[in-house]
């Protein structure tokens, strides 16, 4: 059975831990990699482009407020690259601002999710999310 590769770009350590803890309850075989700022994320993504490996992430969970390079910039880089743009990017943020929502979707974010206050609600949401992207729909497959 496939182990999904999930990239979590999140600067807040607590949030990263919570997300990792939440994934334990989602019941998905997955490997979550955490990148703690925008620059690190860009470097990681550039390496993927250079390597053109098959090991690109199955899902990116992207926070908006990131140090050095912000989430929208990271999103733009992903969606402007022909190789990377097929990766679903789910913006995961606390921001409810119209501006952020608009910036995210106009840069082709696949989803926009507000971090719930309640951990159990968060787990539920993650379950729905994973269900959708990894079970319900037919995902894009690289033609090798």
């Amino acid at each position: 059975m496939k182990v999904f590769k999930i990239l979590l770009i999140e600067d807040n350590e607590g949030d990263a831990i919570l997300t990792l803890e939440a994934f334990k309850h989602v019941g998905l075989k997955c490997n979550v990699e955490v990148l703690t700022d925008g620059e690190l994320a860009l470097n990681y993504l550039n390496n993927l482009i250079t390597a053109k490996t098959d090991s690109k992430p199955d899902l990116i969970l992207l926070d908006i407020n990131l140090p050095k390079v912000n989430g929208i910039e990271v999103l733009r880089n992903v969606k402007q690259d022909g190789f990377l743009r097929t990766i679903p990017v789910v913006v995961l943020t606390t921001s409810n601002s119209h501006q952020d929502l608009n910036d995210a979707y106009s840069n082709h974010a696949n989803s926009y999710m507000i971090k719930p206050m309640d951990l159990f609600v968060f787990i539920d949401h993650l379950k729905v999310l994973c269900d959708y992207w990894f079970r319900v729909i037919k995902r894009h497959v690289e033609s090798v």
Partner: peptide
């Protein structure tokens, strides 16, 4: 959210 979530955790 941190406080609440970690309390739950």
């Amino acid at each position: 959210r941190m406080v609440k979530s970690f309390i739950q955790l």
